[in-house]
Design a protein around this nucleic acid. Structure first.
Lengths: 167, 167
DNA sequence: ATAAACTTTCAATTATTTTTGAAAGTTTAA
DNA sequence: TTAAACTTTCAAAAATAATTGAAAGTTTAT
């Protein structure tokens, strides 16, 4: 396999993975492309490489920047904008975790809290409902807190120890 | 808020969360419904409650069973099949993690390994590509191994200790 | 073997999401 | 101020994914 083929395969795979995780294909592909580009790319470059329209490129670059995993850069003498991806993978994971927590998990937690707070003395069915949704609330809260802790976790000693134990 | 409203809100929210994570809405809704049902439900019950067609119910129940998070049950004297959800949340999390690992992460790892194995001496661009994809391979492999370890992790003492420290 | 009770399949339809492209908007240089 | 160079927006079109419903398939009882 030579470079061009490998690069394309990587971009396609990353794009497919993105869509299975609720991120749109082009967004994931742009991110993949930027990850393996040694130099920042212009919108023009990206459109050309991925064969997508200007509007599509613009919207998805904006989304990537909102997620905080792609940055704008300016080259002196050049009028147009260039883009680079966050290349530190720990940083990338933290940003994605934070963003998904904020956008999806936090709102879901609120709903879980609300629905598990209804009067459970009405019926056996109600009692079961409150029990299940309460358990779910506790579980999701715990999982979400773990995500929040990832940042500090990765640079403290006991974390590293456990990582080692867990292989 | 009374029971019926709370139940509906829960089902809708769980469904929406599902679609943000690459699981189809109906599949997540059926799962939600079964989670809060004290008794196993028939396909008929599910169709009625969620206002969906027989085909839709059948296909999504099948998918849920493939994931190993919904079970078929037979009631003696009854001809039709009933369904229940896995209600142990640790078990649920493990099953989902295993399934996503198998379906999505493992194949992606294979591609990462392949594309990071090309001859990197050709050009600076190629060198950078191999560096980045190799890092990504190591990272995803490590993350995936962590998922694999969740099962044993949750019932060993040092795991519990760390959980405690992490609040 | 027949038929009733039930489940699965899948081509066609419907709904949702993504993408396009051209007009509107913005910034910079002269 | 004007115009060139560039970016953003968004309604319409295209692509993708989910859903329906009726026919085909199964299982069980008689």
């Amino acid at each position: 396999m030579e470079f061009k083929e490998a690069k394309n395969k990587f971009i396609q795979t990353w794009g497919a993975l993105g869509s299975q995780w609720g991120i749109n294909k082009t967004m994931a592909q742009i991110h993949a492309l930027l990850m393996v580009s040694p130099e920042p790319l212009s919108m023009e470059d990206i459109m050309e490489e991925l064969l997508i329209s200007r509007g599509n490129a613009s919207m998805n670059l904006r989304a990537l920047m909102d997620w905080g995993i792609v940055y704008k850069e300016y080259k002196s003498g050049e009028r147009k904008e260039f883009f680079t991806a966050e290349k530190d993978l720990d940083e990338l994971a933290v940003k994605i975790a934070q963003e998904r927590s904020k956008r999806e998990i936090k709102p879901a937690l609120k709903v879980l809290k609300d629905v598990s707070s209804i009067d459970k003395t009405k019926s056996a069915e109600t009692k079961h409902f409150v029990e299940q949704t309460s358990k779910l609330y506790d579980f999701v809260l715990k999982a979400d807190n773990m995500l929040d802790k990832v940042t500090e976790f990765k640079d403290n000693w006991i974390g590293r120890l456990v990582m080692k134990i867990m292989k």
